[in-house]
Design a protein around this nucleic acid. Structure first.
Lengths: 191, 191
DNA sequence: AGGCTAGCAGACAGGTCTGTCTGTCACAAT
DNA sequence: ATTGTGACAGACAGACCTGTCTGCTAGCCT
């Protein structure tokens, strides 16, 4: 077993390190030199896989998207089959995220905050939020909400608020409050 | 009338320019050279008033705090004397903020996103959010909420969510959804 | 055996950033 | 009139950041 485990071990190491560092300090707060030093990869190798730093940032955001969206769906699924329960249950992902060591809010919002609107990073963030909201709209429809668009917006607002609060102090109480609010709003919208 | 209008005209010009630039691009995205060029102030003058760049950033955040908190209170007051109405009315500040040209989310969250936890800027942000929440807790108490702490947290979550969404697309629909959600939560909490 | 690919190591250029320092000017108050 | 102060102008050092380039090593496939 030499190095055929994955097609590109160095690439994976880079992405893993970038994930950790970018999330902790923000993409702009981490230099390329730090990434290569901590991942033990040569600079030329990095630039072969990711020609510009932004390409690495975008790959990082894709990784975050998969991870976070996955957690959200898993938490919803764990709440049962009723879409109404799922809309509330997804907040368990927020609660556990707040408890996780090193939680620092939403990687997308943090990244978007330090880029000019119109950048690729900005666009990718908007896209991510749109995908999540579309999923919530679907849940809201199946839950029988009178105005699924409105309910979905309110739910995602609560999620984003909880994530934003997490940049400051990762207080699980805020996440619990969001969950309770979601419950009330879902009841209201389906009554 | 020479230059005795204000004690320090250059300082005011610096702060005004910093406010505009820091809010648009994030403190880390704006160099000192840009600030002095756009405000027409000498570098030495800047460093006399603000020994470190962070001091300028903190002064900027104080300015934001006054402005935003003022808008929030004004919107609440405009909604009438009933604390219940005020809890909902404050969201009009969010709605108009979203409509304003160049709206770019919450300056505090954006600033905090690009600093390591533990920095002065981070602390100032936490403080700001605590002050706002304390004010909302007071309103919730006077509104007769069963659990004022909980309601206040939910209201501030919605505000922060709306502000965070504003980093991406300043959609007034999100702010309106937040306002409606606040109404439902207030009703629920005071029933 | 020979060539190809992936990767390591590190120098280098060109730019930008913060913060310091020197020197000059204008005005106001003593 | 002289002295002090607030401000302007800009050079400078030292650090850091991105992205390029040159060499070298080791395994794999033909």
């Amino acid at each position: 077993m030499t190095a055929a485990d994955t097609p590109h071990p160095a690439r994976d190491r880079l992405l893993g390190t970038a994930f950790r560092l970018f999330y902790a300090h923000g993409p702009r707060g981490v230099g390329i030199d730090t990434v290569i030093a901590e991942s033990g990869v040569a600079k030329a190798t990095l630039y072969k896989h990711f020609p510009r730093k932004d390409d690495l940032v975008l790959a990082y955001l894709d990784k975050v998207d998969q991870a976070w969206f996955g957690q959200l769906r898993a938490a919803a699924r764990a709440a049962g089959d009723d879409p109404r329960e799922q809309l509330v249950g997804m907040f368990d992902a927020l609660v556990s995220a707040c408890r996780r060591e090193g939680f620092h809010g939403c990687a997308f919002i943090n990244a978007a905050a330090e880029t000019n609107a119109g950048s690729e990073i900005h666009a990718r963030t908007v896209e991510h939020k749109a995908v999540v909201r579309a999923w919530v709209v679907d849940l809201a429809q199946r839950a029988g909400a009178r105005d699924p668009q409105m309910l979905a917006r309110q739910i995602t607002l609560l999620v984003d608020g909880g994530l934003a609060a997490g940049v400051l102090d990762a207080d699980p109480a805020a996440a619990e409050a969001a969950k309770q609010a979601a419950g009330a709003l879902v009841d209201e919208a389906c009554r």
